[in-house]
Design a protein around this nucleic acid. Sequence first.
DNA 1: TTATCCATGTAATCGGTTACATGATTGT
DNA 2: ACAATCATGTAACCGATTACATGGATAA
Lengths: 185, 185
Amino acid sequence: VSLRHALLVTLLSGAASGYELSKRFDASTASFWPARRQQIYAELKSLEADGLVAATVVQQAGRPDRRDCSITAAGRQELARWVSEPAAPNVVKDELLVKLAAAELVDVGLMIDLVSVWRGQRAERLAVFEQLEKGFLRGKDRETYLRTARRVGPYLTLERGLEFERANIAWADNVVAVLLARGRG
Amino acid sequence: VSLRHALLVTLLSGAASGYELSKRFDASTASFWPARRQQIYAELKSLEADGLVAATVVQQAGRPDRRDCSITAAGRQELARWVSEPAAPNVVKDELLVKLAAAELVDVGLMIDLVSVWRGQRAERLAVFEQLEKGFLRGKDRETYLRTARRVGPYLTLERGLEFERANIAWADNVVAVLLARGRG
DNA sequence: TTATCCATGTAATCGGTTACATGATTGT
DNA sequence: ACAATCATGTAACCGATTACATGGATAA
């Protein structure tokens, strides 16, 4: 009861092969529900077996066959049922935070490096999200989009992701400043 | 390679029984590395078997015996080694975000309720964190604390947690406003 | 010619959850 | 009387990761 529904949600944006889905995940859903390709293939099979997803094999010139998956009516129904249930509390796992909590055990310079590398990864992700945002807005301003768009869910979740990464970066900068100051003192 | 080190970090703040550790986790580490009691007991056993943690049985009046665990020199060494390794990218899993992305499938009012309940949970956690912050600062202001404290790691991670929950709450309020506006429209 | 993209999987393992079990003590 | 707190575990299961496997097409 987890990736199943995240996949169904992703299929709301249109049919896709397992391969393509895994890329959609990396770009968007991955921020709050990551998944490996193998797991996606396995779960799609299971969804298909349960009739929540329908697949058609598409033959391509000079490329491997592709199994295009789309959400079925039963899939939408099951998704609506699941959405209506109360949500499980969220889980944030971040190794860097654990490491920082043990900062005393290592050299200050090393800790600063770790935080800086992490900051760089966050910045990369932020850049991806900002591109995605442009794709949503297509020149419109935020308010107009939110008033007129057919679906707002994906955009609202993206906004959480954007804010999350910006806060991560600001926090990291501050941590580095604090560690530097203490390193000098 | 995961909870092990989070436990060792928590033991840096002093020896504790599995039961007490699980409570420390709920209060602090749980924000970025949650764990169940059963898992903590199991992992402590394994750490003990590897000599990274030492346990002594304490007999108590009118209470069950308590196995007090403390980190060993080998434990500190292993922890320092692990901290020096690059950190794995973080993972945020949040069912509510997945559900919101599928908001179109359910009634607007229901979606608003889901977000509100979630907001309440975030607010509760924020309150816990704010209490913890007071415990760290003990009346001092932030700058003084960061300059003078022996360990700053745990406080810096707490700051990330505080910001995270505040951002969650602000975001939830905004989501509710958007959904309300669309519900009326 | 080396690497990357497309495209899909299997097998083994591991980290973590759920359900279950026990039992005395203290507070409402 | 009932619930909560202290205190520690076992067993079964499941969701997810890692390693491995295949193979043609295209771009550097």
